[in-house]
Design a protein around this nucleic acid. Structure first.
Length: 334
DNA sequence: AGTAGCACCTGATTGC
DNA sequence: TGCAATCAGGTGCTAC
């Protein structure tokens, strides 16, 4: 399932391929893939046809193309849901795939020979496209004073900055993670607290920080909250680097089940297998209707006051200085 | 205000 | 073998 690292891989791939292109054709194969647009697919197609793509931007799992046009700037927003993919075809495009929900024809001003076909595929149809105005905001994250001005689509204004965002208000995020009666895992999945964390990486971050997913947020210590946030950063960072290395420029694959990161998962999906730290069997519980995986020993609830030493070697954080977020329009190479 | 629960949807897997 | 039930997931909406 696409979470922040996978979406960033898609964003980077799309940005390198479609920036500067003009949308000269739109086909919608499944009307319901267009959402949050009152006029439906017709309005969507009319709004994006003829516009050029200035950049591909992301916050958390929300992705959008900034469109230049003669009217005010708008965004072609996309959410990949559980199974969304973008695929780019150079030259003659094959017939639309069975799961293709929308197809865009792209041309390049001054390069009449150059054209691309951009397909939006989505097997499970939780993903969607829409077109909407962008909004300048000091910071979409609640309480994030002092962050630089940012332009985000209207539908993204309530989404917090993500774990990899250098302007994430760390103190505010830690405080938010320690607020409320909800289990800490449910707070981690709340995209208005901190964005980009999905079910898989929430389990991984909590395993790494040795925090029980069922612990009430208000019972989380300040240092444990720091550990959880740091662990989320590490897990996301390593996934991003692995995803980036396997990325094919003309096949922008975000199918989480392709598993480029699954081999390094320590908790998610490992029910019954030994914990890499202590050997206890990883257990599966249901929390908020979502499957949750934890080590019953080193993620005991309540957590041990003195955490046992880590056997696993510490992770080194790769350099993320070239990961681009909303409002930052530099080049990116993975 | 904060929280819980459900709808949305398809394909793979499991159970009978 | 074939059918039915279950499961997976993120987000937005509604209800409490």
């Amino acid at each position: 399932m696409p979470e922040l690292p996978e979406v960033e891989v898609v964003r980077a791939g799309l940005d390198s391929l479609v920036r500067g292109a003009t949308i000269t054709g739109v086909q919608i194969y499944r009307d319901s893939c267009v959402r949050l647009t009152p006029g439906g697919p017709g309005e969507f197609a009319d709004a994006v046809d003829g516009r050029s793509i200035a950049a591909v931007v992301r916050r958390g799992k929300f992705l959008w193309m900034l469109l230049d046009g003669d009217a005010s700037e708008v965004a072609l927003s996309a959410h990949l849901g559980m199974s969304g993919q973008f695929r780019v075809h150079a030259g003659d495009a094959p017939p639309a795939h069975r799961h293709c929900r929308a197809r865009f024809t792209l041309t390049y001003p001054g390069e009449p020979q150059r054209a691309l076909t951009l397909d939006f595929l989505d097997q499970r149809t939780f993903g969607y496209l829409h077109v909407e105005p962008v909004t300048a905001t000091a910071d979409a994250a609640p309480g994030g004073q002092g962050s630089p001005a940012t332009v985000v689509p209207h539908s993204v204004t309530h989404i917090a900055r993500d774990v990899l965002d250098e302007h994430l208000d760390r103190d505010h995020t830690i405080a938010a993670l320690r607020t409320g009666k909800r289990a800490i895992k449910q707070v981690l999945l709340d995209q208005t607290v901190v964005s980009g964390i999905g079910n898989i990486y929430a389990d991984e971050a909590l395993w790494s920080a040795q925090v029980s997913p069922t612990l009430a947020a208000h019972a989380l210590s300040h240092s444990s909250a720091q550990d959880v946030l740091d662990a989320a950063y590490m897990v996301m960072t390593h996934a991003l680097v692995q995803g980036g290395t396997s990325f094919d420029a003309l096949y922008v694959n975000v199918n989480g089940e392709s598993g480029y990161f699954s081999r390094t998962l320590q908790a998610y999906g490992r029910t019954g297998k030994p914990c890499a730290r202590c050997g206890s069997a990883i257990e599966r519980i249901v929390l908020g209707g979502r499957s949750t995986h934890r080590c019953p020993n080193c993620q005991a609830d309540p957590p041990p006051l003195a955490a046992p030493p880590l056997d696993a070697p510490p992770l080194d954080a790769p350099n993320l200085s070239d990961v681009r977020h909303a409002g930052e329009l530099g080049d990116l190479r993975l």
